[in-house]
Design a protein around this nucleic acid. Structure first.
Lengths: 161, 161
DNA sequence: CGACGAAATGTATGTTTATTCAACACATGA
DNA sequence: TCATGTGTTGAATAAACATACATTTCGTCG
C-alpha cells in the first residue's frame, strides 16, 4: 500500500512543477527519484489522480486556479478522519456512489466532500445516514468507492447484497 | 483556408453538448452531419481548438457561451423565476442532472419540478443546496441541463472543477 | 508455517492519438 | 498559361496510451 502512495506523491509533485509530455517521461522522473514503475502503472495512477492531457502535456485538474490539488495532499486528513470514524459501507449504483454512515452522521461526512471538492464528483446529497454522490460516470464511481473504502480503512470484500 | 471552419464548429458544438470519448467518435458525429473527415484531421482540429482529454473524454477549456432563444410555455413562469433566482450551476452525470443552488434553496427549486412534472423526469431529490434530477437517459439529461441553464440565464461556461 | 484472498503491478497486446509524407486545392505573379 | 508558394487533407505509420491477463506482494486465518 504505502509504496504506491509515495509514487503518486511524486507524480503530483511533478505535474505541479511543470508539464510532463508523456507517461514514459513520468516513468523516467520516477526512476530518477528511486521509484520504479512501468508505463501501465503510470497510466493507472494518472487516471486515479484525475490528470488531464492537453497539447502541452499532463496537468491536474484545478491546478492553475487552485494551488492545492492532488488526491493525497494533507488537506485530505479531515476527510480520512471523517470516513474512518463514520463510514459503514460504500456501494456503487450506476454513476452513483451510495455511502452509509451511522444514524445522524451522514451530514458530517458529506460536509467533507463539500469542503474538498473533486472534479469527478458532480454533486452530493446527504440524508440522515445515507449519502448520494453523483459521479461523472460509473468508472469514476467505482474508483471513488475504492478510494473512500481505502481511506476509511474498510475491507473491500464485504460490500453488499 | 476557410473550408474546415464548418467542421470545427461542429466539433465545438459536440464537445459543448456532451462527452466525446475518442476521435473516432468525433469522426462518426461529423459524418452524421454530412462532413467527412479522418481521424488525423480531427486530431489536428482538437489540438487547434485547445481541447483536453481526461478520463471522461474530450473537453474544451475556455468554452464560449452560445446564446439560444427558447420557447417556454406560460406554466413555466414560476419555474423560470425560481431558476433565475436560485440556480448556481447544472451538470450532467450519467442520467442524472445535478443542480446547485445557494444554501437552503434547493428545496424551493425542487418544488417547482414537482409542480410541473415532465415525462422525461423520473424523479427528484433535494438536499440543502443540491438537487438530483433523475432523467430517463443521458441524452434527456443533457437536454434538460441546457434548458435549465437557459431558463436561469446562466452561460454555459464552467464544466471544470 | 502454508493456504487463501485482495490488491498492486508487470507483460503483452489492443486501442487510440500524433506525425510524416505525398497529393491536392487555390492563389499569385511572371 | 505555367511555375511557385501556402495551406489542408488522407493514408500509412509511429508513438502513446489503456487494458486483459499473469504474477507478485502482503495481510489474515487455520
Amino acid at each position: 500500500m504505502g509504496k504506491g502512495v509515495r509514487r503518486r506523491e511524486l507524480i503530483v509533485a511533478a505535474l505541479q512543477q511543470g508539464t510532463v509530455a508523456s507517461q514514459a517521461e513520468v516513468c523516467a522522473l520516477l526512476e530518477s527519484h528511486g521509484v520504479e514503475a512501468t508505463q501501465a502503472t503510470v497510466s493507472r495512477d494518472l487516471r486515479e489522480l484525475g490528470a488531464i492531457k492537453s497539447a502541452d502535456g499532463y496537468r491536474l485538474i484545478g491546478q492553475a486556479s487552485n494551488g492545492s490539488a492532488g488526491l493525497y495532499s494533507n488537506s485530505e486528513k479531515s476527510m480520512r478522519q471523517a470516513l474512518e470514524t463514520f463510514l459503514v459501507s460504500a456501494e456503487v449504483a450506476g454513476n452513483l456512489l451510495v455511502l452509509k454512515t451511522g444514524p445522524g452522521q451522514a451530514q458530517v461526512v458529506a460536509v467533507e466532500f463539500d469542503r474538498h471538492p473533486q472534479p469527478q464528483v458532480v454533486g452530493v446529497i446527504a440524508g440522515d445516514d445515507t449519502i448520494f454522490l453523483a459521479l461523472k460516470n460509473e468508472k469514476c464511481a467505482n474508483a471513488m468507492r475504492d478510494r473512500v473504502i481505502d481511506l476509511a480503512g474498510l475491507s473491500r470484500s464485504g460490500g453488499g447484497s
